[in-house]
């Protein structure tokens, strides 16, 4: 039987949204001595819909995970829908939108699983959309530079390595 696939079927490679997020996740530890890191978790892959969660993690605080945002896309990768909480959504002028049924189910399942594992969860009431890779990178940059992200990282960083009072010079 002859091979009917095109010669270059596996040669075309695109930078997927999740791979871009994983690259960014690696950078956070560099700036925090790995006291606070970031992780991308696969929330679900079902019926050609891919859902990923981007966590800020404090490994030394009982491996505390804070879900900063989620992304959802189908097999074509773009457009990507970002889901985030109210505070981040307001900061980024995101649209308040009830998530799709699928995301409700996936998020609920994800929340139950994460709660059982001791992860903190938050709601995904606000959304933004990226139609292509450039827009995706722009929105990721806005999220990572946001006041909300910095608050979470700073809070976890200071709790992870609490400075004894006698070391504070004032």
């Amino acid at each position: 039987m002859i091979n009917l696939w095109p010669d270059n079927v596996s040669k075309e490679k695109w930078a997927s949204p999740v791979s871009l997020l994983r690259e960014q996740a690696r950078f956070l530890g560099d700036q925090t001595k790995n006291l606070v890191t970031a992780e991308v978790g696969t929330a679900s892959i079902e019926d050609e819909v891919f859902l990923y969660n981007f966590y800020i993690v404090a490994p030394t605080l009982n491996n505390y995970h804070y879900r900063l945002f989620s992304i959802e896309h189908n097999i074509e990768m773009y457009p990507v829908t970002f889901y985030m909480d109210e505070q981040l959504g307001n900061e980024l002028n995101a649209m308040k939108k009830k998530p799709s049924n699928f995301v409700d189910i996936a998020a609920a399942a994800s929340r139950r699983q994460l709660t059982e594992m001791g992860f903190k969860t938050n709601h995904n009431e606000y959304t933004k959309r990226a139609d292509n890779e450039d827009e995706f990178i722009k929105i990721v940059g806005e999220i990572l530079k946001s006041v909300r992200a910095r608050q979470v990282i700073s809070s976890l960083r200071s709790q992870a390595h609490a400075v004894p009072e006698e070391d504070i010079p004032f």
Binding site: G29, D30, T32, K33, N34, T37, P59, T60, N62, N63
Partner: peptide, 13 residues
């Protein structure tokens, strides 16, 4: 992970 150098170590919970 000393100051002024790229952190090399991670905590494995």
């Amino acid at each position: 992970n000393p100051e002024h150098s790229k952190p090399r170590y991670f905590f494995a919970p």
